[in-house]
């Protein structure tokens, strides 16, 4: 049971982030206007072009900060509603992210240099299940978007062609289309934002990429952000504990132990987390 204090603290934190993002947006607009003015006064085309180009970057950054502010506003609204109606599940920041992308199902996956899934957050059950599949099978849109540092989209038969394991399993969840964009800033990609069964056109809209950039700038790679997405990020803690346990029991490297757990979960159509809990309780021994 979450206390009233927790709701008000979350609200305060989200309001702070919203205000900060708005201030940053305003600052970027001021900079853009200054360069637009300078472009108008420029005596040569070279100078005019330079100022216009700089202004365009400031405008785009301003829009991104505004999107970030709206994501925080949305979370504040959800939290405020929740604070009034106790007993309902705690709202997820990711629900607002999904809504901003025009879908109900969205996931954020943080992926390391080794392309391992390090942490994840999802807006609903289908997106959580899709992420779990990607974790178990080691293939899928978030991993590809991160590796290639560019958007990835597939639907219908293309899902199965592109990912022989993940595609059919995703279809088994009733998901027919997926799109992912990298969470990247300054040439560094730290994961991907994925949407499942988005409304037609979402995957190629600018909005999707803008939400990803807003998330990266304001939450994931910001000095005053929160890469844990308000406590919603799951770092597979139990799964890694169980992997350590299996590694000790079998005398095998922990990476092999982790693969055994994932394989077991896939074979049982269970989550790696569920398998890990049984191992941790001593109810299941692998090998």
């Amino acid at each position: 049971m979450v206390t009233g204090g927790a709701a008000s603290e979350l609200i305060a934190s989200a309001e702070r982030k919203a205000a900060l993002a708005r201030a940053r947006s305003t600052h970027e607009i001021t900079s853009a206007e200054r360069h637009e003015l300078l472009a108008g006064q420029a005596r040569t085309e070279a100078l005019e072009n330079m100022h216009l180009r700089i202004a365009a970057v400031h405008r785009a950054t301003a829009a991104c900060h505004l999107t970030a502010a709206r994501l925080q506003d949305d979370y504040v609204n959800r939290l405020t509603g929740w604070a009034r109606q106790r007993g309902t599940p705690k709202p997820l920041f990711m629900s607002g992210v999904a809504a901003a992308c025009g879908t109900g199902s969205a996931s954020v996956t943080l992926i390391g240099a080794s392309l391992d899934q390090l942490a994840m957050a999802a807006s609903d059950e289908p997106s959580r299940a899709a992420q779990e599949l990607e974790f178990q099978l080691g293939e899928g849109p978030s991993r590809d978007a991160t590796r290639q540092a560019r958007p990835v989209a597939a639907a219908g038969a293309a899902l199965r062609e592109r990912w022989p394991g993940y595609g059919p399993a995703l279809a088994g969840l009733g998901v027919d289309a997926v799109a992912a964009v990298p969470l990247s800033l300054s040439g560094r990609c730290v994961g991907a934002l994925a949407v499942f069964d988005p409304v037609q056109g979402v995957a190629d809209s600018d909005t999707f990429g803008e939400v990803a950039e807003a998330l990266t700038r304001s939450m994931i790679l910001s000095p005053d952000g929160d890469p844990g997405l308000y406590g919603a990020i799951d770092a597979h803690a139990q799964v890694h504990q169980a992997a350590g346990m299996v590694s000790e029991q079998l005398g095998c490297p922990v990476t092999d132990a982790l693969e055994l757990i994932k394989a077991r979960a896939y074979a049982e159509s269970a989550s790696a987390h569920a398998v890990a809990e049984r191992i941790l309780r001593g109810e299941l021994r692998l090998g």
């Binding site: 943080l110 390391g112 390090l118 942490a119 770092a235 597979h236 803690a237 139990q238 890694h240 504990q241 169980a242 992997a243 350590g244 346990m245 299996v246 590694s247 000790e248 029991q249 922990v254 941790l280």
Partner: peptide, 16 residues
């Protein structure tokens, strides 16, 4: 995040 992973794994290893 990588540190977190290895700490969880070590907890499991030592527990076993």
């Amino acid at each position: 995040l990588v540190s977190r992973v290895v700490i969880e794994q070590a907890k499991g290893t030592l527990a076993a």
